[in-house]
Design a protein around this nucleic acid. Sequence first.
DNA 1: TCGTAAACGAGACGGTACGTCTAGTCTTTGG
DNA 2: CCAAAGACTAGACGTACCGTCTCGTTTACGA
Lengths: 192, 192, 192, 192
Amino acid sequence: MVAKGRPRDPGVNKRVTEAVMVLLAEKGYSGLRIDDVASVSGVAKTTIYRRWSSLQQLVVDTIAANLGGRQLAVTDDPVADLRQVCVMLVESIGTESNPVLAVALDLHRQSDKELRTRYREQIIDPARHLLVDTLSRVKGAGRLRSTLAPADLADMFIGATIYRLGILREPMTANQVEAIVDQITVSGSAAS
Amino acid sequence: MVAKGRPRDPGVNKRVTEAVMVLLAEKGYSGLRIDDVASVSGVAKTTIYRRWSSLQQLVVDTIAANLGGRQLAVTDDPVADLRQVCVMLVESIGTESNPVLAVALDLHRQSDKELRTRYREQIIDPARHLLVDTLSRVKGAGRLRSTLAPADLADMFIGATIYRLGILREPMTANQVEAIVDQITVSGSAAS
Amino acid sequence: MVAKGRPRDPGVNKRVTEAVMVLLAEKGYSGLRIDDVASVSGVAKTTIYRRWSSLQQLVVDTIAANLGGRQLAVTDDPVADLRQVCVMLVESIGTESNPVLAVALDLHRQSDKELRTRYREQIIDPARHLLVDTLSRVKGAGRLRSTLAPADLADMFIGATIYRLGILREPMTANQVEAIVDQITVSGSAAS
Amino acid sequence: MVAKGRPRDPGVNKRVTEAVMVLLAEKGYSGLRIDDVASVSGVAKTTIYRRWSSLQQLVVDTIAANLGGRQLAVTDDPVADLRQVCVMLVESIGTESNPVLAVALDLHRQSDKELRTRYREQIIDPARHLLVDTLSRVKGAGRLRSTLAPADLADMFIGATIYRLGILREPMTANQVEAIVDQITVSGSAAS
DNA sequence: TCGTAAACGAGACGGTACGTCTAGTCTTTGG
DNA sequence: CCAAAGACTAGACGTACCGTCTCGTTTACGA
């Protein structure tokens, strides 16, 4: 089947998501208004709603599109990798203007299950799986001290970070990350 | 100094907070409407706004007032106490109709710093301190395996719970709680 | 220039003004509520406020739109015409349910100058000019006894009517109107 | 029977009415707020409402109390007296900050008949009767040209003034007053 | 080249809730 | 019983923002 009618302007998505990023940085997630998105992007509200079913969908997509290369180089030392992954996670959550956390927390209100699923699949799971995988590799190398499942460990780390930054509004220091990683893993390459 | 003018009707606070509790149970936090609170409580909206500067303030106060006896009996066995505290925390966060989490997550949007402070002092900190204290007692008894600070451990546990229940929307099973406690503590009374 | 965007629903003005007329007849001007207008007309309050900046603006427009054919047939006898105009004016002011007077008096409170101008141009002046013109024709026919300017005479007549009906709340009888007209004009056709 | 309890503070009435006058001058009738009256006068709202049943009652009383010596010296020349009375009436209505007219117009909205009666008896009628009496004296002196009843003439004059100043918002010039008096009366002392 | 079909821009519209304002009443303490 | 102070009721107001709708206009493709 051939596409009929005027094709979608490929520039629209770009202009809109860029406007969203700008506005998120400027006014934060709770200050984001669909009319502002429309006027800043120069794209009509109708057009926006043709592509995204709600403001939240738009934000989720925008964030997902701007996450980009979370993949890290895998080295020989899984513990070092773990350290790196943890630092990166804290950073990606911690930026004040970073809307990832705000959106995550806000979505809780939402009854729209599909939207939550989408958010989880596109934004949460990639990061979570990265951590779980890394932990598994640590375990595979016999350097995981904890007997807890990698998934549980991952949730504890991510959860602690979210709690600290999002709810307590206190920083997650490099020292703390270090201590946690040390706690979880066996230092050196001492396996037995 | 003597109080002048008509004293505030002490029944108002009670009627209003009760109405809030009822409505939260019925329709949840996102379905809470100030006009409903007014009509259900029989208190004029003006009066409500005289005492609480916003709907959120009201909810925070209501929840704080209804938390009540979170204190648990302290036994000889700090590890057993810890277990109990953890279970209770998971329950208090996990109840579907429980608005504590919803409010916590929603407050993130709010720029009102005073409100967040209030929420933290009245609702978050009591629970958090309870866990920190219990962990400290475990440590004092020489039964803490982890070398992490009790506060960090507490944040990890609470954070994991919030993350699981609030964001991943997956249950925090009794087994998982058990495993975490086991991981953190030295089993038995193998202290000396 | 081409009209852009969704055109204003022409039915809205009609539905709203009709609702206003109904409500004015039912509850009078002081009982008119914007929410009632919205619900009776089936037009959203927001939409009403998009077209009229206040309830009063709406009422002024509504009345102006419903004044309709105040023009009377012009006969050969200007004195007879004058008599007819005077009777009509008294009636149009005097009807109990007629909001013209109520609005006129209420507008006095209003500091909104533009609104008063509008009221005057759309509602007051047409009636006033009709009377002034008729008096001028009487004068032109040499049948005006009074040496006062037609405009002053008109103001005296209209003012007396408003004062009687609106402030004294006493009727303006046909006899009184008759007497006034007789006083002002030269009876018979004793012109030449 | 002896008066029981605390006697009414005689200063209250004075302080309140003075505050009303000040506020009327400052913000006009439509800007008059009962709470402002209370705070400016230093008299509690409760006390005000014990003495006046409504804000409007208070204003009516205040105005009545501040009208003062409208009585004019009666001379030998009734036409000169009439002239003087007319000028005075125009002035008393015309002052921009003068609330007499504003109140009169506002009372129209009010369904409270007793209040309207009071306003009429205390404020309107004195002025009206003064004009009617003066016109009667002119008539008694055989110098009334018009055959209209003095009451009707009075209403026309007062009505015209109100209409001009209150609704048309145009001045009533000395020339116009002069012309009207000339029209009504026989100049000189030519009686026959 | 012309018709068709969908995308797009612009703005009107419906609806829901919010927080505010203000008149008049009620409830205390104190004189 | 009066006065002061201020809490309280009741009802309306105008605003904000979302997501939908209704046009006129534009852009591609196919007949």
